[in-house]
Design a protein around this nucleic acid. Structure first.
Length: 302
DNA sequence: CTTAGTCAAGGGGTA
DNA sequence: TACCCCTTGACTAAG
């Protein structure tokens, strides 16, 4: 079991998700921004290593406007050696990487042009991981998408469109249950047709299903990951902000709730992404909590 | 310097 | 059809 956090490290003064407005686009500004983002990414990974954090989500803003038509710059070639250097660091230290394109990436959209834009956005994400020479346990996680007032049809459209993607994208994609439309059961249906691994989001499950997570159910999700190529299952964990609205993520890790989740999934090993506002602080807290946990120790001692 | 409005991109829900 | 919500940090123009 690895513990991770997404995109931003608040203890360091740099950011790897610096971007700018479309209006101020220039090739020079892009180069300068990407260079800074890559430098910071390596700093974050070094921080993580020093603190036994072996799982990290790389921001989608690493290369601003990467899939936008305005960007005709060959950033892949220009930064090739920088990507390789970061990839070497990740591989050498047995780190795990994920990426999560945002809500505009919808491969099941009714509109063909939105699918096409989403395809380019996914291509960008897959390229980042390819340029780092990471194996296929580094994943790009997306949601199923919209319902378009016909959920079964929209689910089928996802399957069809997934088949239309190039294999360099397909081998990276995992699907995540969302908070109100497509639950993990829907993701399992898609898995049955496509073999796409299902990334389980604990918090979304609570919001969408309002039921207790059963051992059998969790086992079926875990089994969608082919350990020989996909690596351990990935799980997103968060809890609700106390006193906040239903969908708000907590500001800091609720150890009691986290521990309950760990106990209920004791039989399984997986990597946990903590989607919590205070980022690396929660990861450090979780790691401290897990110091004597069997699954966590197993990774450190391997 | 501080603050409030805005940013490439979608979709769901309500009235 | 119009409008608000989701959620997010940070850019950027205005004060």
């Amino acid at each position: 079991m690895r513990i991770g956090y997404p995109c931003i490290n608040r203890s360091l003064s740099c950011s790897s998700n610096k971007t700018f407005r479309l209006k101020s686009y220039s090739e020079e500004y892009l180069k300068q921004t990407v260079r800074g983002n890559l430098e910071c990414l390596l700093k974050i990974l070094k921080f993580n290593l020093a603190h036994s954090i072996f799982f990290f989500r790389i921001t989608s803003d690493l290369v601003p406007f990467a899939s936008h038509p305005i960007n005709t710059f060959d950033w892949q070639e220009f930064f090739r050696s920088d990507f390789e250097l970061i990839g070497d660091f990740i591989l050498k230290n047995r780190m795990r990487i994920s990426m999560h394109p945002d809500q505009f990436t919808l491969i099941n959209s009714i509109r063909e042009e939105i699918f096409e834009r989403s395809r380019l956005e996914l291509k960008y994400h897959a390229e980042v991981l390819d340029l780092m020479n990471l194996d296929f346990s580094a994943k790009v996680q997306i949601h199923v998408g919209g319902a378009y007032s016909d959920k079964p049809k929209s689910l089928e459209r996802f399957v069809k469109r997934f088949g239309d993607l190039e294999s360099s994208i397909r081998r990276r994609i995992v699907i995540e249950n969302d908070d109100k439309l497509y639950d993990a059961g829907d993701c399992l249906k898609i898995n049955a047709e496509t073999r796409i691994p299902v990334l389980f989001d604990v918090f979304h499950h609570r919001l969408c299903n309002k039921t207790q997570l059963s051992d059998d159910y969790f086992e079926r999700l875990v089994q969608t990951w082919d350990s020989s190529k996909d690596g351990l299952p990935m799980v997103d964990y968060s809890s609700q902000k106390p006193g906040g609205l239903a969908m708000q993520h907590a500001d800091r890790l609720d150890l009691e709730d986290f521990d309950m989740f760990l106990k209920s999934t004791e039989r399984f090993d997986f990597d946990v992404m903590l989607e919590i506002k205070d980022k690396e602080k929660s990861a450090l807290k979780a790691i401290e909590w897990l110091a004597n946990e069997k699954r966590f120790r197993a990774f450190l001692e391997a």
